[in-house]
Computed example of a mutant assay.
Amino acid sequence: MHPDTHLALHQVRTAGLRAEADAHRLAAAARRPRDLRNLRTRLGWTLVEVGLRLTTPPRTAASVP
């Protein structure tokens, strides 16, 4: 097979694979709404904050002379 023909076939295959990957990426992004991701992020950070508050010792009030 001529090298230029071989290269052209690889380029066509690469373009097809990239298009397929883009289609899968767009379909995956469409499956999960952004609001749900935002809610999950906020819930996750809230749980982290609660966990940190539970593990730190309570502060004692300083006595005023």
Rank of each mutant, 00 (worst) to 15 (best):
T14F: 10
V12T: 11
D35Q: 08
P57R: 09
T55L: 15
S63A: 12
A28M: 04
A27R: 00
L52G: 05
W45D: 09
N38T: 14
L54Q: 02
W45P: 00
R31F: 07
T41W: 14
E49A: 14
N38L: 15
A21W: 04
Q11H: 08
T60H: 10
D4Q: 05
M1Y: 05
T5M: 10
L43I: 07
V48N: 01
R31L: 13
V64K: 02
R53W: 09
T55I: 09
R32C: 10
T14N: 08
R34F: 15
N38Y: 13
R40V: 14
E49C: 12
L39Q: 05
L39G: 02
A27W: 06
A15T: 01
A23V: 05
T5K: 05
T56K: 09
V48D: 06
G16F: 03
G44W: 05
G51M: 14
S63E: 15
G44I: 02
R59L: 15
N38S: 11
R32E: 14
R18S: 09
T41D: 11
D22Q: 09
P65K: 00
T41P: 02
E20C: 06
P65A: 02
V64D: 14
L17A: 12
A19C: 03
A23K: 02
A15M: 03
R53F: 09
T60N: 08
A30I: 00
R53C: 02
R40T: 13
P65M: 01
A61E: 14
D4S: 04
R32Q: 11
A15D: 06
A30T: 02
S63W: 13
L36C: 04
H24L: 15
T60Q: 13
T5S: 06
R53T: 03
T46D: 15
P33F: 01
P3Q: 02
L17N: 06
L9T: 01
R37E: 12
V64W: 07
L36N: 02
W45Y: 08
A29D: 11
A19T: 05
L54F: 10
G44A: 13
D22M: 10
L52N: 08
S63F: 08
A23F: 07
P3W: 01
T56A: 12
V50T: 00
L54C: 06
R34Q: 13
T55V: 12
W45F: 14
L7P: 00
L39N: 03
S63I: 09
R42A: 13
D22I: 03
V64R: 02
P33G: 00
H24F: 12
L47R: 06
A21L: 13
T14Q: 11
R13H: 14
R18L: 14
A29Y: 02
P58D: 04
H24I: 12
A29C: 03
L43P: 02
A21M: 05
A23I: 03
R40I: 12
R40P: 01
T60K: 11
L52D: 03
D35I: 04
P58Q: 01
H24V: 10
D22V: 01
